Amino acid sequence: PDLGLTQLFADPNLIENLKKNPKTSEMMKDPQLVAKLIGYKQNPQAIGQDLFTDPRLMTIMATLMGVDL
């Protein structure tokens, strides 16, 4: 199971919303991170391994779920 990750990354406004959010806007200036996020739309399971190697993803996930870290 993808634990709902498919829906989190399926939002067509995902990148724009993250660019507008004060907690994630600075991160979204990294083209490699943006490319990763776009890739998760097609393969949400890929985030599982990346969560352990890129701490920014935890902040992004929390933001998408509405959790304040």
Score class of each variant (00 low, 15 high):
residue 1 P to F: 02
residue 1 P to W: 02
residue 1 P to N: 11
residue 1 P to G: 12
residue 1 P to Q: 11
residue 1 P to C: 11
residue 2 D to L: 10
residue 2 D to N: 13
residue 2 D to W: 06
residue 2 D to I: 15
residue 2 D to M: 08
residue 3 L to R: 09
residue 3 L to T: 11
residue 3 L to Y: 14
residue 3 L to Q: 13
residue 4 G to T: 15
residue 4 G to V: 15
residue 5 L to G: 05
residue 5 L to A: 07
residue 5 L to E: 04
residue 6 T to S: 13
residue 6 T to C: 11
residue 6 T to R: 12
residue 6 T to H: 14
residue 6 T to Q: 15
residue 6 T to F: 12
residue 7 Q to L: 11
residue 7 Q to D: 10
residue 7 Q to R: 09
residue 7 Q to F: 07
residue 7 Q to V: 11
residue 7 Q to H: 13
residue 8 L to F: 10
residue 8 L to D: 02
residue 8 L to H: 06
residue 8 L to R: 05
residue 9 F to A: 02
residue 9 F to Q: 01
residue 9 F to D: 01
residue 9 F to C: 05
residue 9 F to W: 10
residue 9 F to Y: 04
residue 10 A to Q: 14
residue 10 A to T: 12
residue 11 D to N: 09
residue 11 D to R: 03
residue 11 D to W: 03
residue 12 P to D: 09
residue 12 P to Y: 03
residue 12 P to Q: 07
residue 12 P to R: 05
residue 13 N to E: 09
residue 13 N to R: 09
residue 13 N to S: 08
residue 13 N to C: 09
residue 14 L to F: 08
residue 14 L to H: 02
residue 14 L to A: 05
residue 14 L to I: 10
residue 14 L to D: 01
residue 14 L to V: 09
residue 15 I to V: 08
residue 15 I to A: 02
residue 15 I to P: 01
residue 15 I to L: 09
residue 15 I to T: 02
residue 15 I to F: 06
residue 15 I to M: 06
residue 15 I to Y: 03
residue 15 I to K: 00
residue 16 E to V: 08
residue 16 E to A: 10
residue 16 E to I: 07
residue 16 E to S: 08
residue 16 E to W: 05
residue 17 N to F: 15
residue 17 N to S: 13
residue 17 N to E: 09
residue 18 L to Q: 00
residue 18 L to P: 00
residue 18 L to F: 02
residue 18 L to G: 00
residue 18 L to M: 03
residue 18 L to K: 00
residue 18 L to V: 01
residue 19 K to S: 10
residue 20 K to R: 13
residue 20 K to W: 06
residue 20 K to M: 12
residue 21 N to S: 06
residue 21 N to Q: 04
residue 21 N to V: 02
residue 21 N to Y: 06
residue 21 N to T: 03
residue 21 N to W: 06
residue 21 N to R: 03
residue 21 N to H: 14
residue 21 N to E: 04
residue 21 N to C: 06
residue 21 N to G: 03
residue 22 P to L: 05
residue 22 P to V: 05
residue 22 P to E: 08
residue 22 P to H: 06
residue 23 K to V: 12
residue 23 K to H: 14
residue 23 K to I: 12
residue 23 K to D: 05
residue 23 K to N: 11
residue 23 K to E: 07
residue 24 T to I: 06
residue 24 T to K: 00
residue 24 T to Q: 00
residue 24 T to W: 02
residue 24 T to F: 07
residue 24 T to V: 06
residue 24 T to D: 00
residue 24 T to P: 00
residue 25 S to K: 10
residue 25 S to R: 13
residue 25 S to P: 00
residue 25 S to W: 05
residue 25 S to H: 11
residue 26 E to R: 06
residue 26 E to Y: 07
residue 26 E to F: 09
residue 26 E to D: 08
residue 27 M to Q: 02
residue 27 M to I: 10
residue 27 M to N: 01
residue 28 M to K: 00
residue 28 M to E: 00
residue 28 M to G: 00
residue 28 M to S: 01
residue 28 M to F: 03
residue 29 K to P: 00
residue 29 K to T: 11
residue 29 K to C: 04
residue 29 K to I: 03
residue 29 K to A: 07
residue 29 K to L: 10
residue 30 D to R: 01
residue 30 D to K: 01
residue 30 D to S: 03
residue 30 D to H: 02
residue 30 D to C: 03
residue 30 D to M: 01
residue 31 P to H: 07
residue 31 P to A: 08
residue 31 P to Y: 06
residue 31 P to F: 04
residue 31 P to D: 09
residue 31 P to Q: 11
residue 32 Q to I: 13
residue 32 Q to E: 13
residue 32 Q to V: 13
residue 32 Q to T: 12
residue 32 Q to H: 12
residue 32 Q to A: 14
residue 33 L to S: 00
residue 33 L to V: 04
residue 33 L to R: 00
residue 33 L to A: 01
residue 34 V to E: 06
residue 34 V to M: 06
residue 34 V to P: 01
residue 34 V to W: 03
residue 35 A to D: 11
residue 35 A to V: 06
residue 35 A to T: 09
residue 35 A to Y: 06
residue 35 A to G: 06
residue 35 A to L: 13
residue 35 A to R: 09
residue 36 K to C: 04
residue 36 K to T: 08
residue 36 K to N: 04
residue 36 K to R: 11
residue 36 K to E: 03
residue 36 K to F: 07
residue 37 L to T: 00
residue 37 L to Q: 00
residue 37 L to V: 05
residue 38 I to R: 10
residue 38 I to Q: 13
residue 38 I to V: 10
residue 38 I to K: 13
residue 38 I to L: 15
residue 39 G to V: 11
residue 39 G to D: 15
residue 39 G to N: 14
residue 39 G to C: 10
residue 40 Y to S: 01
residue 40 Y to L: 09
residue 40 Y to W: 08
residue 41 K to H: 12
residue 41 K to I: 15
residue 41 K to M: 15
residue 41 K to W: 11
residue 42 Q to S: 14
residue 42 Q to N: 15
residue 42 Q to A: 12
residue 42 Q to I: 10
residue 42 Q to M: 12
residue 43 N to A: 05
residue 43 N to H: 08
residue 44 P to V: 08
residue 44 P to Q: 05
residue 44 P to E: 04
residue 44 P to Y: 04
residue 45 Q to I: 10
residue 45 Q to H: 13
residue 46 A to N: 12
residue 46 A to E: 11
residue 46 A to G: 10
residue 46 A to Q: 12
residue 46 A to C: 08
residue 46 A to Y: 09
residue 46 A to R: 10
residue 47 I to W: 14
residue 47 I to H: 07
residue 47 I to T: 04
residue 47 I to A: 09
residue 47 I to K: 03
residue 47 I to V: 12
residue 47 I to N: 05
residue 47 I to C: 05
residue 48 G to Q: 15
residue 48 G to P: 11
residue 48 G to S: 15
residue 48 G to V: 15
residue 48 G to I: 15
residue 49 Q to R: 12
residue 49 Q to E: 14
residue 49 Q to I: 13
residue 49 Q to G: 10
residue 50 D to P: 02
residue 51 L to E: 04
residue 51 L to N: 04
residue 51 L to I: 13
residue 51 L to W: 12
residue 51 L to Y: 08
residue 52 F to K: 14
residue 52 F to C: 09
residue 52 F to W: 13
residue 52 F to I: 13
residue 52 F to D: 07
residue 52 F to H: 12
residue 53 T to H: 10
residue 53 T to F: 11
residue 53 T to K: 14
residue 53 T to M: 10
residue 53 T to L: 11
residue 54 D to R: 00
residue 54 D to H: 02
residue 55 P to T: 10
residue 55 P to W: 12
residue 55 P to G: 07
residue 55 P to S: 10
residue 55 P to R: 09
residue 56 R to W: 06
residue 57 L to S: 01
residue 57 L to C: 03
residue 57 L to T: 02
residue 57 L to V: 12
residue 57 L to R: 00
residue 57 L to N: 01
residue 57 L to M: 13
residue 58 M to Q: 08
residue 58 M to P: 05
residue 58 M to H: 09
residue 58 M to K: 09
residue 58 M to G: 05
residue 59 T to Y: 15
residue 59 T to G: 04
residue 59 T to N: 05
residue 59 T to E: 06
residue 60 I to V: 07
residue 60 I to C: 02
residue 60 I to K: 00
residue 60 I to N: 00
residue 60 I to T: 01
residue 60 I to A: 02
residue 61 M to I: 15
residue 61 M to R: 03
residue 61 M to F: 13
residue 61 M to P: 00
residue 61 M to V: 15
residue 62 A to H: 08
residue 62 A to G: 10
residue 62 A to R: 08
residue 62 A to W: 12
residue 63 T to M: 14
residue 64 L to G: 02
residue 64 L to N: 01
residue 64 L to P: 00
residue 64 L to E: 01
residue 64 L to D: 00
residue 64 L to H: 03
residue 64 L to R: 01
residue 65 M to I: 09
residue 65 M to F: 10
residue 66 G to K: 10
residue 66 G to Y: 07
residue 66 G to C: 08
residue 66 G to Q: 09
residue 66 G to V: 07
residue 67 V to A: 14
residue 67 V to D: 13
residue 67 V to N: 12
residue 67 V to M: 15
residue 67 V to R: 08
residue 67 V to L: 15
residue 67 V to C: 09
residue 68 D to A: 02
residue 68 D to W: 02
residue 68 D to K: 02
residue 68 D to L: 02
residue 68 D to N: 05
residue 68 D to M: 02
residue 69 L to V: 13
residue 69 L to M: 13
residue 69 L to F: 06
residue 69 L to T: 14
residue 69 L to K: 10
residue 69 L to N: 14
residue 69 L to C: 10
residue 69 L to S: 14
